[in-house]
Simulated scan of single mutants.
Amino acid sequence: MQKQGTKLAFLGLGVMGAPMAGHLQKAGHDVTVYNRTATKAADWADTYGGSHAATPREAATGADFVFACVGNDDDLRSVTLGNDGAFAGMSAGAVFVDHTTVSAAVTRELAAAAGAAQISFVDAPISGGQAGAENGQLSIMCGGDGGAFARALPVMEIYSKICRRIGDSGAGQMTKMCNQIAIAGVVQGLSEALHFAEKAGLDGRAVVEVISQGAAGSWQMANRYETMLDDEFEHGFAVDWMRKDLGICLDTSDEIGASLPLTALVDQFYKDVQKLGGGRWDTSSLIQRLRKMG
């Protein structure tokens, strides 16, 4: 078990990062945070009792492990590279763990840059949404050196229900793409089922009570059907972010020769949701597209 009191840094305090960093501080570690909006970092420190820094480099200086959970490829580069980046502050032998969903290409790029500085890099995208982060029940899929993963695992276990190394650098990001591909199809299917029930004059809740106990059951059905029926879409991963992720999936599918016809179609459906003004709605809002656009 990772000893308590380990010096950690956490970069990015969005709806996922803030509670994840909070779990680390509550577990007895010495956590310094950085956020692009400095007031969020100060507020986090007031809430959890950790420290905050003005730059990623300052946060990472002296840390045994540095964690990041930011927005996209460019955001990740901005907190790792350059004079103020985390890599410039990290000591040889430290481990950088990236929880951002980014392209496998940028993962390999940054893993190489970290390696040149004698820093280990673990790509560790997460699934489980805001609730999973708040409850410490995330699924974490990892790529990178096995030794670095083994060192970081006891720390990541603080906020995860499963954390597994899939393979070498980039394997975690590839696995996250599988996750998003699977979610896209399931949410579209659930949306169509509930929309069909509404059009048929059925009680949607009664329908789900029955079909959820059979082969149609899913996490999405269990956790999203009520809010979908109630037109409430403020409970999870935003459409804007899902389109970013699906774009990565589709770009990568071209590179590796995979066929993703359903994913491409659902990506366009999410584009329709954005046109409805739903970019910040959660991903279950695909049903709203059916109601409004047919």
Rank of each mutant, 00 (worst) to 15 (best):
Q2C: 08
K3F: 05
K3Y: 07
T6L: 14
K7L: 08
K7Y: 02
L8V: 08
F10H: 03
G12L: 02
L13S: 07
G14C: 09
V15M: 13
A21R: 00
H23I: 00
K26L: 12
K26E: 15
H29G: 04
Y34W: 15
A38Q: 14
K40S: 06
K40R: 13
D43K: 12
A45I: 01
D46Q: 14
T47L: 11
Y48N: 01
G50A: 04
G50N: 00
G50M: 02
H52K: 04
A53W: 04
A53N: 03
A59M: 09
A59P: 06
A60G: 10
A63Y: 02
D64P: 07
D64Q: 15
D73K: 10
N83T: 12
A88I: 02
A88S: 13
G89Y: 10
M90S: 12
A92T: 10
G93W: 06
A94E: 05
F96Q: 08
V102Y: 05
S103A: 03
A104V: 14
A105P: 00
V106P: 03
T107K: 03
R108S: 02
E109V: 07
A113I: 06
A116F: 05
A116R: 13
Q118K: 15
Q118R: 14
A124Y: 04
P125Q: 11
P125N: 12
P125Y: 11
G129P: 03
A131K: 15
A133W: 03
N135G: 14
M141I: 06
C142G: 02
G144F: 03
G147C: 01
G147I: 00
F149N: 02
F149E: 01
F149P: 01
P154I: 01
P154G: 05
E157A: 07
E157I: 00
I162W: 10
C163Y: 00
C163D: 05
R164I: 11
R164K: 14
R165H: 06
D168A: 14
D168W: 00
G170A: 11
M174I: 13
T175C: 15
M177A: 10
M177G: 01
I181H: 02
I181P: 02
I181E: 02
G189D: 11
G189M: 11
L190A: 08
L190C: 08
L194F: 08
K199F: 04
K199Y: 06
G201R: 08
L202Y: 07
V207P: 06
V207F: 05
V208Q: 04
S212V: 07
S212H: 12
S212K: 15
Q213D: 10
G214H: 10
G217C: 12
Q220E: 13
Y225S: 13
E226Y: 05
M228R: 09
D230E: 15
D230M: 12
E232C: 12
E232F: 07
G236L: 11
A238Q: 14
A238D: 09
D240H: 12
W241H: 15
D245K: 05
L246D: 00
L246F: 01
G247A: 00
I248W: 01
C249W: 00
L250E: 04
T252Y: 12
I256T: 13
L260K: 08
T263E: 05
Y270A: 06
Y270W: 07
D272E: 13
Q274Y: 03
R280H: 15
I287V: 12
R289P: 00
L290T: 03
R291P: 02
K292R: 13
K292Y: 01
